[in-house]
Amino acid sequence: TEVDLHLGDITIKLKDVSEEIVKRAKELFKNGWSAEFVKKWIEEAVK
């Protein structure tokens, strides 16, 4: 499945990412993480 994760003005296309990771990524962004950091976190999380 593909998900578009909207973080501010940046959209990250996610492939084969669990709902849990998407939820967590949104929380991290809301908590002040930059979109770049969230993207890196996701990449690490799906390895």
Rank of each mutant, 00 (worst) to 15 (best):
T1F: 13
T1C: 13
T1P: 11
T1D: 14
T1S: 13
T1L: 12
T1K: 15
T1M: 14
T1E: 14
E2D: 12
E2V: 12
E2C: 11
E2Y: 14
E2K: 06
E2A: 11
E2S: 12
E2F: 14
V3A: 09
V3E: 12
V3I: 15
V3D: 07
V3K: 07
V3C: 08
D4P: 05
D4I: 15
D4K: 08
D4F: 13
D4Y: 15
D4H: 15
L5M: 06
L5K: 02
L5D: 02
L5R: 02
L5A: 01
L5I: 10
H6W: 09
H6K: 13
H6F: 10
H6P: 06
H6Y: 09
H6E: 14
H6L: 10
H6R: 11
L7V: 04
L7T: 01
L7Q: 01
L7D: 02
L7R: 01
L7S: 01
L7W: 06
L7I: 08
L7Y: 03
G8S: 03
G8V: 03
G8F: 04
G8W: 04
G8I: 03
G8Q: 03
D9C: 12
D9T: 10
D9K: 07
D9F: 06
I10K: 05
I10Q: 10
I10G: 03
I10V: 14
T11K: 05
T11Q: 05
T11M: 06
T11A: 07
T11E: 05
T11H: 09
I12H: 03
I12C: 05
I12S: 03
I12Y: 04
I12Q: 03
K13Y: 12
K13E: 08
K13P: 12
K13S: 13
L14P: 01
L14M: 04
L14R: 01
L14D: 02
L14F: 06
L14G: 02
L14E: 02
L14W: 04
L14T: 03
K15H: 15
K15C: 10
D16Q: 06
D16Y: 08
D16L: 04
D16V: 04
D16G: 15
V17Y: 05
V17W: 04
V17H: 03
V17N: 01
V17L: 06
V17Q: 02
V17G: 02
S18M: 06
S18E: 06
S18N: 11
S18D: 13
S18K: 09
S18I: 06
S18Y: 04
E19K: 08
E19W: 13
E19S: 07
E19T: 10
E19C: 07
E19Y: 10
E19Q: 09
E19F: 09
E20R: 09
E20F: 09
E20W: 11
E20P: 05
E20I: 09
E20S: 10
E20Q: 09
E20G: 07
E20T: 10
E20M: 07
E20Y: 10
I21Y: 04
I21N: 02
I21R: 00
I21H: 03
I21A: 02
V22N: 01
V22F: 06
V22K: 04
V22E: 03
V22T: 05
K23R: 12
K23P: 00
K23L: 14
K23A: 14
K23E: 15
K23Y: 11
K23D: 14
R24A: 12
R24N: 10
R24Q: 14
R24K: 15
R24V: 08
A25S: 02
A25V: 04
A25Q: 00
A25E: 00
A25R: 00
K26W: 12
K26R: 11
K26A: 10
E27H: 08
E27M: 09
E27Q: 12
E27K: 06
E27I: 08
L28G: 03
L28R: 02
L28P: 00
L28A: 03
L28C: 03
L28H: 06
L28E: 01
F29L: 07
F29H: 05
F29G: 01
F29Q: 01
K30E: 14
K30T: 13
K30V: 13
K30I: 10
K30G: 11
N31C: 13
N31Y: 08
N31D: 14
N31I: 10
N31H: 11
G32W: 02
G32M: 02
G32A: 02
G32K: 02
G32E: 01
G32P: 01
G32V: 01
G32L: 03
W33S: 10
W33L: 12
W33I: 07
W33Y: 13
W33C: 12
W33T: 06
W33E: 08
W33P: 00
S34R: 04
S34K: 06
S34L: 06
S34G: 09
A35F: 08
A35Y: 06
A35G: 08
A35K: 04
A35W: 08
A35V: 13
A35P: 09
E36R: 03
E36F: 05
E36P: 05
E36W: 05
E36K: 05
E36H: 07
F37L: 13
F37W: 14
F37G: 13
F37N: 14
F37I: 13
F37V: 12
F37Q: 15
F37C: 07
V38L: 06
V38G: 00
V38Q: 00
V38I: 14
V38H: 00
V38N: 00
V38A: 01
V38S: 00
K39Q: 12
K39S: 12
K39Y: 07
K39I: 15
K39W: 08
K40V: 11
K40M: 12
K40Q: 15
K40H: 11
K40P: 00
K40I: 12
K40N: 13
K40T: 14
K40Y: 10
K40L: 14
K40G: 09
W41Y: 11
W41L: 02
W41I: 02
W41S: 00
W41H: 01
W41D: 00
I42F: 03
I42D: 00
I42W: 01
I42P: 00
I42A: 03
I42H: 00
E43L: 09
E43P: 01
E43K: 06
E43H: 07
E43I: 11
E44V: 06
E44I: 07
E44Q: 07
A45W: 09
A45M: 15
A45H: 08
A45Q: 15
A45S: 08
A45L: 08
A45T: 13
A45P: 01
V46A: 07
V46E: 04
V46K: 07
V46M: 13
V46D: 04
V46H: 07
V46S: 10
V46N: 06
K47V: 13
K47L: 14
K47T: 11
K47F: 08
K47Y: 07
K47N: 12
K47D: 08
